[in-house]
């Protein structure tokens, strides 16, 4: 009888990532960033930019919900730039769909700074989908 299952600390499996994705998709952006930060600290070199990208997009969304629009715009830009290296899919995540929706959010934020017209509707923050 198998008493326990060993999990790799170095390379997170899909189950690990799905916890962070659930935080993100539930709009718990601070928790999502915290979770991805744990993975980022211990992951393989090839995954580092991927998890840092997820951290930065999560932080960008967190800043957005706190009305820190300049912080949000900078973090979303930095994060999506890193995730670009992992398109179209990584860890079975649909990054193309996610990137397109984050790009729309970035356009909204840029529009805010150009027009200073209205607050951003946080309802347009996308979710991250698995393939």
């Amino acid at each position: 009888m198998q008493l326990f299952t060993s999990f790799s600390i170095i390379s997170p499996d899909l189950k690990d990532i799905s916890i962070g994705i659930n935080y993100f998709n539930s709009a718990d952006f601070f928790l999502a960033h915290d979770f991805f930060e744990e993975l980022w600290a211990d992951c393989d070199r090839e995954d580092r930019k991927f998890f840092q990208g997820l951290i930065q997009v999560s932080v960008g969304c967190y800043h957005l919900t706190c009305n820190n629009y300049s912080g949000a715009l900078n973090q979303l830009n930095k994060g999506i730039l890193k995730l670009n290296d992992y398109l179209p899919s990584y860890y079975n995540l649909n990054l193309i769909d996610f990137k397109n929706n984050i790009d729309k959010l970035i356009i909204e934020l840029k529009g805010y700074f150009l027009n200073q017209s209205k607050k951003i509707d946080v309802g347009i923050i996308p979710t991250i989908k698995f393939n």
Binding site: E37, V59, S70, G71
Partner: peptide
Amino acid sequence: ITDECINCGAC
């Protein structure tokens, strides 16, 4: 430290 800080305290 810019206003992008998330106050994680890592630094």
